[in-house]
C-alpha cells in the first residue's frame, strides 16, 4: 500500500519525521482553540460585570497560593442537580477576567462558584481558622495563620497593571490607588471608601471582613470568597437564557 510505502521512506528522515509530528499535532488545537478567541458568542456580554477590587484580587492570589482549587471547583454545570444544589449554572463571562480561570476539576469539597453572600463573614473566618469548629466532619485543612499574616499590599498596583496589559479593564486611577483601596474596603466608614465605591461601583462590598485592626490575609480571602458569583447579577435574573 502506497501510504505505508510513504511512511517507510519518512522513517529514514528524522527532521522530516519531526515536522510531520508537528503538523499532525497542531490541527486539533487550531480547530478547537483559535475560534474561541474570534467567535463573539463564546463569551456573553454582561452589562453589570465588574472587576475584582484590589482586596478581592489579593484574596484570589491567596486562594491560588494555598491550592484551594485542588478541592473546590468554580464551575456549575448545566445539570439540574447542580443548579439546584449550587445556583444558576456558570456563564463564560463570569470568569472573563480570571487569569487564570479556577474552574477546577475535582469536588472533594463543594463548588464555590456562587459562594458569595451565602454565609456570613464570621462563618468564613471561623471556618478558615478551623473548619471542624463549624462543620464537624469536614476534612478541609485549617488555615489559622491567615488571620495573623499581614496582607502585603505594596505592589497591588503592579498586579492590576499587569492584568490590564492582559485585557482586564483596570483604570489608571484604580492602579494608582490600589493599596489604599485594599484597606478602604474593610473600613466602610472611612473617607477612602467613597473613592473605592466611585472606582469599583455601588455593588462593592465594604465590610470589616475579619474585624482585625489591621489588614490581614484573612480579610483578603474572605472578601474574595464573598464576591464569588457576585461580579454580575445577570445569571440570577429569571428570564436570562444566554
Amino acid at each position: 500500500m502506497s501510504l505505508f510505502k510513504a511512511h517507510y521512506n519518512l522513517e529514514k528522515h528524522s527532521v522530516g519525521f519531526v515536522v510531520a509530528i508537528i503538523l499532525a499535532a497542531s490541527v486539533g488545537g487550531l480547530v478547537e482553540i483559535a475560534p474561541l478567541f474570534t467567535i463573539d458568542d463564546t463569551v456573553e456580554t454582561l452589562p453589570d460585570m465588574r472587576v475584582y477590587t484590589p482586596l478581592e484580587l489579593a484574596g484570589r492570589d491567596i486562594y491560588i497560593r494555598e491550592g484551594c482549587y485542588a478541592c473546590h471547583s468554580q464551575m456549575i454545570r448545566t445539570l439540574r442537580d447542580e443548579v439546584e444544589r449550587y445556583g444558576p449554572y456558570s456563564l463564560a463571562a463570569e470568569s472573563q477576567y480570571d487569569h487564570p480561570m479556577l474552574w477546577g476539576s475535582k469536588r472533594t469539597g463543594p463548588d464555590l462558584a456562587r459562594l458569595g453572600s451565602k454565609y456570613s463573614d464570621e462563618w468564613h473566618v471561623a471556618h478558615l481558622i478551623n473548619p471542624r469548629d463549624v462543620v464537624p466532619t469536614s476534612i478541609m485543612p485549617a488555615y489559622p495563620w491567615l488571620a495573623t499574616n499581614t496582607l502585603d499590599v505594596a505592589d497591588l498596583g503592579q498586579h492590576l497593571a499587569v492584568l490590564r496589559r492582559l485585557g482586564v479593564p483596570y483604570t489608571d486611577e484604580m492602579i494608582a490607588n490600589a493599596p489604599h483601596d485594599a484597606l478602604a474596603q474593610t473600613r466602610p466608614d472611612g473617607e477612602a471608601a467613597t473613592g473605592l465605591v466611585a472606582r469599583y461601583g455601588e455593588a462593592t462590598t465594604l465590610r470589616p471582613f475579619s474585624g482585625a485592626d489591621r489588614l490581614t490575609e484573612m480579610d483578603a480571602l474572605v472578601a474574595y470568597l464573598q464576591v464569588l458569583g457576585q461580579l454580575s447579577q445577570v445569571p440570577y435574573a429569571p428570564e436570562v437564557t444566554p
Binding site: I33, A92, Q96, H99, P100, M101
Partner: peptide, 18 residues
Amino acid sequence: AKSYSAFSGVQDAMVQWW
C-alpha cells in the same frame, strides 16, 4: 515569582485542558 496567565476564563480553560 508571581505571574498572571495570558489567558482568562473559557479560553484559558480550553488551553489548560488541551
